[in-house]
């Protein structure tokens, strides 16, 4: 790690890259590949969803009535909004406007927290009714022998998605700290960019989950 030019604008280029562009392209490609693995990770759950829905179509329409479309809808809007603020944060980083970038990141985290709070209310309401995942399921409102499987899939999908939202909150919080310290500029905003990619994917997965779980008719 010896940089004879460590004072220059290229300070962020790691030793094994030739230039800033190579580093940026690599990071972006790496993130895209990681997103592919994320899609496949959730893909397994989507396959389980498709299989059980094909086997028990009536169960899915029946059970979906227990999900709160309004709360789900609000959450969808909140997440879509957060994607916008995330995109703006990247834009402002590119424009060397660290202050606006910082506030946009803050807005993204706020939206993510709203999402999690709404999710918390949805979950506790279901727990209250006895809709637990798996064997703890005691709800009697749905007359179907495999009702617990629908909710197992529901909890797995939304739970895993929720964990991704939490990870996103952590990453964006870290970006805020770095932004505050002035780490990013028009020359170097790679972490903001690739975290943005991640955040859009988390958003996108929810956009699939919402109609698949809540809006079955």
């Amino acid at each position: 790690m010896s940089h004879t030019d460590s004072m220059s604008a290229n300070a962020h280029v790691q030793h094994h890259f030739v230039d800033s562009e190579q580093q940026f392209d690599s990071a972006k490609l790496g993130m895209w590949l990681f997103l592919v693995t994320e899609v496949l990770f959730f893909g397994g759950l989507f396959v389980a969803y498709i299989v059980y829905r094909a086997w028990n179509p009536e169960l899915f329409t029946l059970a979906a009535t227990q999900l709160d479309t309004v709360m789900g809808g609000i959450n969808t809007l909140v997440l879509i909004g957060s994607s916008l603020t995330m995109a703006l944060a990247i834009r402002y980083a590119q424009l060397n406007d660290a202050k606006k970038s910082f506030w946009m990141l803050g807005a993204t985290i706020a939206a993510a927290l709203v999402f999690m709070v709404i999710k918390y209310f949805e979950y506790t309401h279901k727990f209250h009714l006895g809709i637990f995942p798996g064997e703890a399921y005691t709800f009697t409102g749905i007359d179907h022998p495999k009702a617990h499987i629908f909710f197992s899939i529901y909890y797995m999908m939304t739970g895993l998605h929720g964990i991704h939202v939490l990870i996103g909150i952590g990453l964006i919080g870290w970006l805020m700290v770095k932004t505050k310290r002035g780490a990013f500029s028009a020359e170097y905003y790679t972490p903001v960019e690739i975290t943005g990619l991640y955040w859009h994917l988390v958003d996108l997965i929810w956009i699939f989950l919402f109609p698949l779980l809540y809006l079955i008719d």
């Binding site: 389980a48 059980y52 995942p133 798996g134 064997e135 703890a136 022998p145 495999k146 617990h148 499987i149 197992s152 899939i153 909890y155 797995m156």
Partner: peptide, 11 residues
Amino acid sequence: LGIGIFDPALG
């Protein structure tokens, strides 16, 4: 948790 996706005893 016994989510019942793979275990035939749980459907």
